[in-house]
Amino acid sequence: MALATGGYALSSEEKRRVEPKQHLSMIYDQTKCVGCAECESACHSVNLVPAAQNRMIIQDRTDPDNVKARRFVRVSCQQCEEAPCVAVCPTAACHKDSLLDVVTMNGDDCIGCAYCIVACPYDVRFINEETNMAENCDFCLETRLKKGLQPGCVEACKYDALVFGDMNDPKSTISRILSIKDTVRQRPELGTKPSLRYVPAVKQGV
């Protein structure tokens, strides 16, 4: 094999680098979410997050003047392409995974300075009170993604309110949904290029 290609065959590692990178992302569909918070429980059990803390939550955003139209929203790491947390981390403990390009942590190098916590404009990072290391939703990178599984919250959602996949792959479910549904990002004006996409519920009543 090496002979046939003059020694220029790409290893699988090199191929990954040459081929267009994945852009892993998630859609949160407000029209489908009922606020059951089973995603939160799944996240806790998969990622062993301390009981008093969260990597993701579902916030109730129901308008008190219109309680019949229940509204929820997912609060979690927006997986920014221009992530301020990655930019400010003095030890590069907060980084993008070299293979899957997901913002994640190398806890061993984290000194707990909390610079990433204050730098995140979405306030969705925290210092784990048990490990004293900073943490964020990294789509269950180590606990599930690298085993070929979907993030815990996505699997736990019974209402298909969460869709996870590669936005750079035109055949993926997430790309197909994005091509037909209107979605928004959280505060894109901040210049962080957030990856998460939200389908807003706009219908107010009959």
Binding site: V88, C89, P90, T91, A92, C110, G112, C113, Y115
Partner: peptide
């Protein structure tokens, strides 16, 4: 720091997009 005993990590890992670094 939340992990003060690991402060030396900041001296061996540099990230020059970080003002702290």
């Amino acid at each position: 720091l939340h992990r003060p005993l690991y402060f030396w990590k900041i001296l061996i890992n540099y990230n020059f997009t970080s003002v702290m670094s």
